[in-house]
Write a protein that binds this DNA or RNA. Structure first.
Lengths: 124, 124
DNA sequence: TTTGCTGCAAATCCTTTGCAGAGGT
DNA sequence: ACCTCTGCAAAGGATTTGCAGCAAA
């Protein structure tokens, strides 16, 4: 656990904005001005392999990261592309239902809601 | 509806393999050897805007396309990265549940299962 | 003639990687 | 000394875009 890795984890844990790698780079750079973007990518990969964070691959183009490693759902605003946590309990029963209907070995599921965030819904 | 667009749509409708843009390019090239990859990308974008096809953005890296424009779920093999349709009815109730719990204006949801396809589950 | 579409090539964006040096054990 | 990690820069892959020519209305 190097200093860079620790700072990346701390900064990511602080926010619930599901930042992209580049946004994390900007956040971390305030504390470690000489860190490189490559190091940020490498450590995000390692931290998510360790289960300390989650790598999200929402619709849209770029990956985002979540300091909360526990399974939960997300909602993405189709207007501003921001991602937030969706306050809905895990629906594990869908895995059972699908398992009964297919020859796949189901190991998980990802549920992403799309919609308009409150801010975008109110601005024209 | 140019010839190129028609052929792309026909080829995509023929298969249920959810090919990537490049795979579609390879399929179409057998019938239109001089078509360009740029044209394939442009027409996939247009066809999905028209609602004739779907653009999928599964976990993993590249986009995939589905000749079936109707809402349905998918399952992705974590070993070979192939995508198949998931035989499970739409769960519209989750949108209602979440709508009641959030200020977002929910407009849809995407559910992706992950697991091992029968082929990968049986090979070591 | 106007409009939209094409093929080609270059550009762009995000992400990964090679390498030499630094740091810690 | 050894191993892992870093910063930097370059490479990589997928996708988009600029442009001049073509085709149909």
């Amino acid at each position: 656990m190097t200093c860079q890795r620790k700072v990346i984890l701390e900064e990511l844990r602080k926010v619930n904005t599901h930042p992209s790698a580049d946004e994390i780079y900007q956040m971390v750079r305030k504390r470690l001005p000489r860190i490189s973007l490559g190091t940020v990518y490498r450590n995000l990969e390692i931290l998510s392999a360790l289960g300390e964070i989650q790598k999200l691959e929402p619709g849209g183009h770029l990956k985002r990261f979540d300091g909360n490693p526990h399974d939960h759902y997300h909602i993405r605003c189709t207007r501003c592309d921001r991602v937030a946590d969706a306050p809905l309990n895990l629906q594990l029963s869908v895995e059972e239902k699908l398992q009964a209907a297919t020859d796949y070995k189901i190991t998980g599921h990802k549920l992403e809601f799309v919609g308009l965030c409150p801010r975008c819904a109110h601005n024209p």
